[in-house]
């Protein structure tokens, strides 16, 4: 799909449009788009600066500072005269991002942008993407690292077997994630009975934990503790469980 958006492959049927223009060999808004598809490769015998110069020319850019700026921004200054082949995986990824970002695109299309980055690099890329989004760029990102997506995305689409099966904003996602209060006491059976008597929607799960899923309990888990203490069943643990994007994803594709 990303390759389709970049005009690299033709759709089997239908058509793709970007900025309201159909993607065909005549499409010429490529300088509004930056992209990084799968593993970033660079010319191994060229230095970081020279690699960027290749794309500076091919993008027909006219501001030579752009190269220095992006090197600085992606913290590649130390490596700018090093050949691409000796860079670490993380720095190669940075170089790939530098190629995608150098011309300050309106739309950035990224496929697995944090592959191979160290934890610090991941945070840096995340900050960079947020910064870019704050300056008005749209970032279209695909990744199988769902935790990362949930940290940066405003809008999430789930694709399964080539079909978009869900598209929602982060706010909508938050409201759709399963939340439960999980409780454990010394006598879960009695506790379950009391909780049910107090109109809580509680069940005992396979791990012998009580799961309470009604809104009142989720809004005020402390009331559950209070109730159990009053019944002389002080909870060993009470916590609010929230489903993460990965579980949501699996639940969504299973229900399809």
């Amino acid at each position: 799909m990303i390759r389709m958006l970049l005009g690299m492959i033709k759709p089997d049927n239908g058509s793709a449009t970007l900025f309201g223009r159909q993607l065909n060999p005549q499409f010429n808004l490529w300088n509004d788009i930056g992209y990084l598809v799968e593993t970033p490769y660079s010319y191994p015998n060229l230095s970081v600066v020279e690699n960027l110069k290749v794309y500076y020319n091919l993008r027909q850019l006219k501001n030579p500072n752009l190269i220095e700026d992006i090197i600085d921004k992606l913290k590649l200054t130390k490596y700018k005269d090093k050949k691409a082949k000796v860079l670490s995986l993380g720095n190669q990824q940075r170089l790939g991002l530098a190629k995608a970002l150098m011309h300050r695109p309106k739309l950035l299309i990224l496929d697995e942008p944090i592959n191979g980055l160290d934890p610090k690099g991941i945070v840096e890329v995340r900050e960079l993407l947020k910064e870019l989004a704050d300056t008005g760029s749209t970032i279209f990102l695909s990744s199988h690292i769902l935790g990362e997506i949930s940290k940066v995305a405003n809008r999430i689409g789930i694709i399964h077997e080539g079909k978009l099966i869900k598209e929602l904003t982060t706010a909508e996602l938050t409201s759709q994630l399963i939340k439960e209060v999980v409780v454990e006491t010394n006598d879960n059976k009695s506790a379950l009975k009391y909780l049910t008597d107090f109109n809580h929607h509680a069940i005992l799960n396979a791990n012998n934990e009580i799961k309470i899923s009604d809104d009142a309990a989720i809004a005020h888990p402390e009331n559950i503790s209070k109730l159990l203490v009053e019944k002389n069943l002080p909870p060993k643990q009470v916590y609010l469980f929230t489903e993460d994007l990965e579980m949501y994803f699996l639940r969504t594709i299973r229900s399809n």
Partner: peptide, 8 residues
């Protein structure tokens, strides 16, 4: 793939 979607 980096040569395909460019203004050139």
């Amino acid at each position: 793939k980096d040569l395909l979607s460019l203004p050139t």
